[in-house]
Amino acid sequence: MRVDVVSSENLSFQYNHSEVLSDITFRISEGDYVAIAGPNGSGKTTLIKVVLGFYRPSKGGIFLFGERPHLFKDWQKIGYLPQKSSTLNPHFPVTVWEVVSMGLLSRKKGGDISRADENEAIEKALEYMDIKDLKKRLLGELSGGQQQRVLIARAIVGEPELLILDEPTTALDPDTRDRFFNVLSEMNSKKTTVIIVTHDVGTIGKYASKLFYLDKKMVFYGSFEAFCVSREMADYFGEYSQHVICHRHDTAKPSFTL
């Protein structure tokens, strides 16, 4: 039986007396690859922040590896890429290597990683994101897309059991985006649970196994196959749009080995 990585029971969250998330119940199991989609202001990022314990639910419960997030301690299991990487200070004096190294902080704190293993993990993450030649460069000297690749490398460097990515592909060119999704698929095939917030339902349909459609409440949660025949989704997207998304989902996944 697969273990629940994230689960919620009748979860609601209010911000300034306004309900941002309403009565949401779901389970994300080990090895799932879940795309969270929804319109602007639908609560996608808020849901991620509730999962990570940044915000506490107003009602109901949320569990991360079976524990309340604010009591959770095994942070080395989590890799996280927040949405607002554009707010990073472009003049921050930090090299690519130093940024990726920050992704190993929880493992370093636990004392369960040697310097040699740390270096190896960083080299591997840089290679995954094809930025090995940038490792000595300052983050502020790189383009927006390169910076995003560095931040993704930081999220995956610890080979986390749960990877949470909030709109990670915004600044990426099509080739880099494909490479990134293939890296995620590779990690997912090795049991990393992936939760990805995205607006691009069409592209993610080629990779994710489940879709979580959110609009303050849970509109749809299930497999892409179920999504393609869902009446609610036809109402939301329109018959034609749903057909396009599902058609793209049917296309074969590109082969990729690391």
């Binding site: 942070w75 996280y80 890429l81 927040p82 920050m102 992704g103 902080l105």
Partner: peptide
């Protein structure tokens, strides 16, 4: 880590 990116630092525990 906090100086660079407080949100990710929080998700590192």
């Amino acid at each position: 880590s906090i100086t660079f990116d407080e949100e990710t630092a929080r998700a590192s525990g």
